[in-house]
Simulated scan of single mutants.
Amino acid sequence: MKRNILDYLVISLKGVAMGAADVVPGVSGGTIAFISGIYEELVDSISRINLQAFKLLFSKGLGAFWKHINGSFFLALLSGIGLSILSLAKGMKWLLETHPIMVWSFFFGLMIASIYFLTKEIERWNLASVVVMLLSGVAAYIITAIPPLVNGTEQPLIFILFCGALAICAMILPGVSGAFVLVLLGAYHTILDALSSWQWKVIFTFAIGAVIGILSFSRGLKWLFAHFRNLTFAGLTGFIIGSLNKIWPWKMALEIDPANGSVVWEKSVSPCAFKELTHCEPQIPTAIILAVVGFLLIYSIEYIAGKTKK
């Protein structure tokens, strides 16, 4: 496909939209790629980064390699994604620190809508799909309720590498949020801090993990969707339902890091209990409005995606 500078500028703008989506837990960059009409090309280009591509690199040079992997498309798209993520990270960090209830309420609405659309992808409701959904839901809830194995101030680089590999797989799937995976792993704040304060060691480690993930895990996920699509969607749906505990807006701190005062471990409480325990206003009306806005945002995006598909 022959493209000019304007075509690549449009691809970069689509990358900006994908990057903005990937910063927010609940919004999938893959969904934005699907709506904007570049999803199939993105998946196809990723699949071209294989052994044959590297054989071309060493036998015929960089030009042949670049053409084989659709390198210009990648460069334009990734430039937009990177610019968007780096621009929004500082603002998102500030919002989480100053208005946590409002932010998590909005995210909660996003996830409820994501669950709704994921259930629609389950074409056959049978015993196997129900069992997989229940097991993945229970597993996710347990993960969100137990004390974190790695807290925000002591996350080793190998853990950041793993987070990058896992999050990128979610980012390229429509309906699944990579940022939410980071929230679940307890690395969302760490990555936001790194992006907003230019911690290059963390950023590069995360990026290397993303490259590893997109070249390896993504092929495994593609195989699962090809051979066990129904059960895979059932498992994803159950996992996100069980994980709602992680983004519940009203929390009580159970463990605080003495080094910087950040919350290491917390549990969900009711809005009334939140007021009694923290002596802070639960902001229930605002929280409900923002949750509804979040739900409607995802509903609109998925509705447009459905129309595009048809």
Rank of each mutant, 00 (worst) to 15 (best):
P174W: 14
R124S: 05
F217W: 07
W125T: 08
P271M: 13
I32W: 13
N4W: 07
N260C: 06
M111P: 07
M1Q: 14
V131N: 10
C280D: 10
L51Y: 13
I11T: 10
L77W: 05
A291D: 12
E276K: 10
S300R: 06
R229L: 00
F159W: 11
A194P: 02
Q199W: 02
G80W: 11
K222C: 00
H189F: 08
S129Y: 12
L296R: 10
W125D: 08
L297S: 11
L297Q: 09
A21M: 13
H99I: 09
I247E: 01
T31H: 10
D22M: 15
Y8V: 12
K201R: 03
K275Q: 11
F225A: 00
L296P: 06
G80R: 13
H189Q: 14
L166C: 12
A139L: 11
K222Q: 00
L157S: 08
W223S: 00
I214D: 01
L244V: 01
C272A: 14
G242Y: 04
D193H: 06
A139M: 14
W104S: 10
F204C: 12
F225S: 00
S268K: 04
L96C: 02
P258R: 10
G242R: 01
A64V: 03
K2C: 03
L173R: 09
S218M: 06
C280G: 02
M171I: 07
E266V: 01
V263S: 04
V43F: 15
L86K: 00
G242F: 09
A165I: 14
K307Q: 13
S28N: 10
K309I: 06
A167Y: 03
I46Q: 12
V176I: 15
T308S: 15
V138G: 01
R48M: 11
A139S: 09
P249Q: 01
M111W: 03
A53R: 14
K55Y: 02
W223L: 01
Y116C: 02
P174Y: 10
V269T: 02
D193I: 08
M1A: 13
I69W: 05
I158H: 05
I35G: 02
E97N: 05
E121N: 13
S177Y: 13
L290P: 13
L277Q: 08
V183L: 14
M111G: 03
L127Y: 09
I142K: 04
S84V: 00
L173W: 05
G209Q: 08
G209K: 05
A253F: 02
I158M: 09
Q283G: 05
R48T: 10
T190S: 12
